[in-house]
Simulated assay, not measured.
Amino acid sequence: MRLDIRKWGNSKAIRLPKKLLKEWDREPVAFDAEVKVQWLILTPIFKEQKALDVLFKDYTGDKDDYPFEIVDKG
Protein backbone atom coordinates (compact mmCIF):
# COMPACT_ATOMS: atom_id res chain seq x y z
CA MET A 1 0.00 0.00 0.00
CA ARG A 2 1.41 3.36 -0.99
CA LEU A 3 1.08 6.23 1.50
CA ASP A 4 1.87 9.77 0.37
CA ILE A 5 3.67 12.33 2.52
CA ARG A 6 1.83 15.65 2.86
CA LYS A 7 2.67 18.98 4.46
CA TRP A 8 0.99 19.52 7.83
CA GLY A 9 1.89 22.92 9.28
CA ASN A 10 5.69 23.06 9.48
CA SER A 11 5.95 19.25 9.44
CA LYS A 12 5.29 16.36 7.07
CA ALA A 13 2.60 13.76 7.73
CA ILE A 14 1.45 10.36 6.53
CA ARG A 15 -2.29 9.66 6.71
CA LEU A 16 -3.23 6.11 7.64
CA PRO A 17 -6.31 4.91 5.74
CA LYS A 18 -9.21 3.33 7.62
CA LYS A 19 -8.64 0.10 5.66
CA LEU A 20 -5.15 -0.17 7.11
CA LEU A 21 -6.30 0.57 10.67
CA LYS A 22 -8.98 -2.15 10.43
CA GLU A 23 -6.19 -4.76 10.20
CA TRP A 24 -6.11 -4.74 14.03
CA ASP A 25 -8.99 -5.80 16.28
CA ARG A 26 -8.77 -2.43 18.06
CA GLU A 27 -7.58 1.01 17.03
CA PRO A 28 -4.06 2.10 17.97
CA VAL A 29 -3.69 5.31 20.01
CA ALA A 30 -0.12 5.95 18.84
CA PHE A 31 2.78 4.41 16.95
CA ASP A 32 6.36 3.79 18.02
CA ALA A 33 8.59 4.82 15.09
CA GLU A 34 12.14 3.73 14.37
CA VAL A 35 14.43 3.83 11.34
CA LYS A 36 16.55 0.79 10.52
CA VAL A 37 18.77 0.76 7.43
CA GLN A 38 16.56 3.35 5.65
CA TRP A 39 13.33 1.52 6.57
CA LEU A 40 10.65 3.29 8.63
CA ILE A 41 9.10 0.82 11.07
CA LEU A 42 5.85 1.79 12.80
CA THR A 43 4.73 -0.37 15.70
CA PRO A 44 1.17 0.24 16.98
CA ILE A 45 0.57 1.14 20.61
CA PHE A 46 -2.87 0.22 21.92
CA LYS A 47 -4.81 1.68 24.83
CA GLU A 48 -4.65 -0.68 27.77
CA GLN A 49 -8.03 -2.31 28.24
CA LYS A 50 -9.58 -1.95 31.66
CA ALA A 51 -11.02 -5.03 33.39
CA LEU A 52 -14.63 -3.85 32.96
CA ASP A 53 -14.06 -3.14 29.26
CA VAL A 54 -12.93 -6.73 28.77
CA LEU A 55 -15.68 -8.18 30.96
CA PHE A 56 -18.53 -6.36 29.22
CA LYS A 57 -17.01 -6.33 25.69
CA ASP A 58 -19.81 -8.48 24.14
CA TYR A 59 -22.61 -7.29 26.44
CA THR A 60 -25.65 -6.13 24.45
CA GLY A 61 -28.02 -5.35 27.30
CA ASP A 62 -29.86 -8.69 27.35
CA LYS A 63 -29.92 -10.50 30.68
CA ASP A 64 -28.63 -13.61 28.86
CA ASP A 65 -25.39 -11.69 28.16
CA TYR A 66 -24.95 -10.61 31.79
CA PRO A 67 -21.70 -12.22 33.04
CA PHE A 68 -22.83 -12.61 36.66
CA GLU A 69 -25.44 -14.76 38.36
CA ILE A 70 -28.62 -12.83 39.11
CA VAL A 71 -29.84 -13.55 42.66
CA ASP A 72 -33.42 -12.72 43.63
CA LYS A 73 -33.36 -11.52 47.24
CA GLY A 74 -37.06 -10.83 47.50
Results as ranks from 00 to 15, higher is better:
1 M>T: 09
2 R>H: 07
2 R>Y: 10
2 R>Q: 11
3 L>C: 07
5 I>G: 02
6 R>S: 13
7 K>L: 12
7 K>E: 14
9 G>H: 04
9 G>L: 06
10 N>Y: 11
10 N>W: 08
11 S>M: 11
11 S>Q: 07
12 K>H: 07
13 A>F: 05
14 I>P: 05
14 I>D: 09
14 I>S: 06
15 R>H: 08
17 P>Q: 05
17 P>C: 02
19 K>A: 15
19 K>N: 14
20 L>Q: 11
21 L>R: 11
22 K>F: 01
23 E>Y: 01
23 E>G: 08
24 W>R: 03
24 W>Q: 07
25 D>V: 02
25 D>E: 15
26 R>K: 12
27 E>D: 14
27 E>S: 05
28 P>F: 03
28 P>Q: 09
29 V>D: 06
29 V>S: 15
30 A>D: 15
30 A>S: 10
31 F>R: 05
32 D>V: 05
32 D>L: 03
33 A>D: 04
34 E>A: 09
35 V>T: 12
35 V>I: 15
36 K>R: 10
36 K>Q: 11
37 V>N: 10
38 Q>K: 11
39 W>M: 04
39 W>Y: 08
39 W>E: 13
40 L>Y: 06
40 L>M: 09
41 I>F: 08
41 I>W: 10
43 T>F: 04
44 P>H: 01
44 P>N: 03
45 I>L: 14
46 F>L: 15
46 F>A: 14
46 F>E: 15
47 K>W: 05
50 K>A: 05
53 D>Q: 15
54 V>Y: 06
55 L>P: 02
56 F>M: 15
57 K>D: 15
58 D>E: 07
58 D>Q: 04
60 T>W: 00
61 G>N: 11
63 K>Q: 12
64 D>W: 01
65 D>H: 08
65 D>I: 03
66 Y>L: 13
67 P>S: 07
67 P>V: 00
68 F>G: 14
68 F>V: 06
69 E>A: 14
71 V>D: 14
72 D>V: 06
72 D>Q: 11
74 G>I: 01
